[in-house]
Amino acid sequence: MHPAYSVIFFTTTSGAGYGLLILLGFLSAADALPPHFGLGLAAFGLALGLVTFGLLSSTFHLGHPERAWRAMSQWRSSWLSREGVFAVLVYPAVGLFALGWLVFGRNYGPWAVAGLLAAGLSMLTVICTAMIYFSLKTIHQWHNIWTPPAYATLSVMSGGVLLNALVEIFGLSNPYIAGWVAASIAVAWIAKLFYWRFIDDTEALSTPETATGLRVYGKLRAVEGPHTVDNYLNREMGYHVARRHAADLRRVVHLSAFALPLALTMVSLLFGNSGAAIAATLVAALAASLGLVCERWLFFAEAKHTVNLYYGAEAA
């Protein structure tokens, strides 16, 4: 699948924003985060900024962005529509949560419920995004039981490294927060490992022979395409990354998205409220962001659509 930059930036930035909202909601309800004004302003500003930037960027790949409002209507059948509905519902919940935190300086009682609601709706939005990909039987690599867990945990972890950096900057370091963030990185790493193991160890059901129904005539070769230059289908769905490059990029993801942020988060866990912890968490956030852009690029580049079977691909 063609890795469109608008979709890569949408899923990574809004994923991080929703992850930040998920952790803010849960940790403040668990009384692990004080309703500190500066932290709240920075965290809500950053989260809503990332989410909004991501949603706007996702509309750039539409042919008719002005009709985007119609996308809320088919929630009964479409995961994309459900994603749109939850993405909009998140805003009022976050508004209430932020009102309690920033104006009244409270994050308990009903304000904690608003926080949990914002966290829950954020999680649902991310899961809907993942379900769009998971539900496509046409793409074996995405129709993978590990797609939704990987999306959900990557979102929480990418929000987590941001939260940890903010908490250190405001001098509110707290081993619970650093601990949860470290755990979220470890869990996301495991989910992504299982995602890649599925891709490497399983094969798509469809072959050129099932795509044409011509199995009985022996091995099939595409000898002539319907058109002389690449068409929409080839450009959108024919993108192919060489196995060697994919392996290199996976190493970059292991290092930059998981290993480095995990190690740096452990530094902040052990030496909280220090200049070293601030530097470590900032580098962790930067490394994780770059690593996840790379991860998301690979998510598309490693995905093979069944339509390629009609254009000479031996396997989907």
């Binding site: 539409l62 042919g63 008719h64 996308a71 994309l80 496509l136 039987k137 046409t138 009609y310």
Partner: peptide
């Protein structure tokens, strides 16, 4: 009504839909 999100073309295994 089409917003041009192209998701239908991803969901079609046969490549029957083409984006204009």
């Amino acid at each position: 009504w089409c917003i041009g999100c192209k998701l239908c073309s991803w969901a079609c295994p046969y490549g029957a839909r083409e984006y204009d």
